[in-house]
Design a protein around this nucleic acid. Sequence first.
RNA 1: GCCGACGUAGCUCAACGGCAGAGCAAGCGAAUCAUAAUCGCUGGGUUACUGGUUCAAAUCCGGUCGUCGGCACCA
Length: 590
Amino acid sequence: MSEYIHVSVAWPYANGDLHAGHLAGCYIPADIYARYHRLRGHHVLMVSGSDAHGTPISVEADKRGIPAAELFTYYHKRFLETQQKLGISYDLFTHTDTENHHRIAQDIFLLLLERGYLYRETQQQFYSETEKRFLPDRYVEGECPICHFPDARGDQCDNCGNLLNALDLINPRSKTDGSTPVIRETEHYFLDLSKFISPLETYLKDKTYWRDQVRNEPLSKVKELRGRPITRDIDWGIPLPLDGEDWKDKRMYVWFEAVMGYLTASIEWAKNTGQPDAWKQWWYNPNAKIYNFIGKDNILFHTIIWQAELLGISGIYHDDHTPINLPYDVPANQYLNLEGKQFSKSRGWYISVPDLLERYDPDAIRFYLTANAPETSDADWNWDGFVARNNNELLAKWGNLANRVLKFAIKNFDGRVPEPGTLRPLDEEIITKVEAGLDTIGRLYDAVKLRDALQAAIALATEVNIYLEKAPWFGNVIKEDKQAAATTIYTALRCIDMLNRIFAPVLPFTAERIHAYLGYTEPIFGELLIREYQESTRSHEVLVYEDSKAAGAWEVSKLRVGQQLHEPETIIKKLPPETAADERARMGVK
RNA sequence: GCCGACGUAGCUCAACGGCAGAGCAAGCGAAUCAUAAUCGCUGGGUUACUGGUUCAAAUCCGGUCGUCGGCACCA
């Protein structure tokens, strides 16, 4: 039965390049999950996009002296190119500064208002009289009220590490021009989360299959929920759909609108592909499953706040009383460290993905980050590990297996899949084992145990290597009993064909090549394209997955006797031993 | 500061009340189809430290040390 699987991936802030931590946290796992389900023949809708708004973007833009929109456009484009190269197979990777996202976010705001989930409250905020604007906390500096460090930021003191209330700073000053801000009252809208406590508790208690860390955190917070402001006095963001001078200069708070992207991007995808109601197959179909792939810093937003918003807007753009779907699972990953220390952009301790892609194949990166994924606890990227995994596992166990059998077959059987004799017990045994792997490893993928799935796939490749130790083929056999060798090679090729499908979600580029070497003419997967879509006043570039030619399936090998094979190019590149030392030197480590 | 998670073989990780496991690395051996890639065997752990509960603790409880996250204008 064909299932509807929605793969929603955290929206990256477009204020800097993606780094290896982002990939390990959500982009690679989400892609593996989507590709696996596509092979299974399920209806997959995978969406994400650049987060255009938010203080981090304004801060970075101010630092560079450019408008926020310009900074955002630059990094959005880089996200498209980087993820295309990595093969993150989004049906749509868009952004939050589209007319579509703005309009739906405003509709959602109005619907929540109409249903009584929003209220207004006055807050005290720093205001700069010289700049004539309210200052976000991190734009205010002053003396720390706790340790008396003179240059504490309004949100946190860099000296003592305490989180601060900006209004407590001693001698506050604006970071931009040094002027002294004044305290002013300002009115904002709040989302009344307390109204959702009971349904959220019911929802969370039901999710016994979630990862422990993901479920426990919201369960411990859900009872204390209260209102949270959803508007700010800033100029970069989505305007409020309200009349009146009071609201003209305010924008939606980024946390409130960014998560809506999962829904708005689904709707945009439907529109772009000429089937405007198709998104409802994932959002209003009770049997559809929505998976949110995120990093652990995002857990509360994707287990409580987004759910509250969805509960509040149930029925939007839909006529009957079917409730809108809440996420089925939120397989959040923990963090990836770098050589034992936390990634830190400001200290230069990070690996940017565009940089990584200049020197390494996407599948080498995908393999390492999956074999070593932070699924249950924080994991570590270290260069020795990267080289070792690539050379000793990916290349030695899998790449070499495909290579040795293909080369032997081409040399000795006229470049074609040989006709086997009657299969012997050991041939039957290995084929049965690999076929069973489709099922058992499939279940691991399905349960989002991707690290375990990959480990099991490697173990299965080793089984085929063991088979090749026992079965007759090389040496005297090929000279004296070609029929026996043909049976072995035929069997091994079938196993490789299936293993290739099993590895394909993790290693899409390698899989595509091996698939072609095995003589298949149609690709396993579709391809990623950058497209431009025009709305009424502006256009935007997106990444889309075009799969009309994709023919790969999660199935028993259909290799035909006589099928034309092709001489393999280097399947996996061996990384030279100095790689790790070179990379550490590059990072400034002795 | 408050709340939470984690600390297991050289490395990366599993076991989550019942004899502490895997992969890689290391040592030895076999094989030669293959990118010197494969296969077999072997060695390797007072489960951070410390009290306690239990017939039995890596696992449950308390404390100490260390790492990390959340604490609502930094998702």
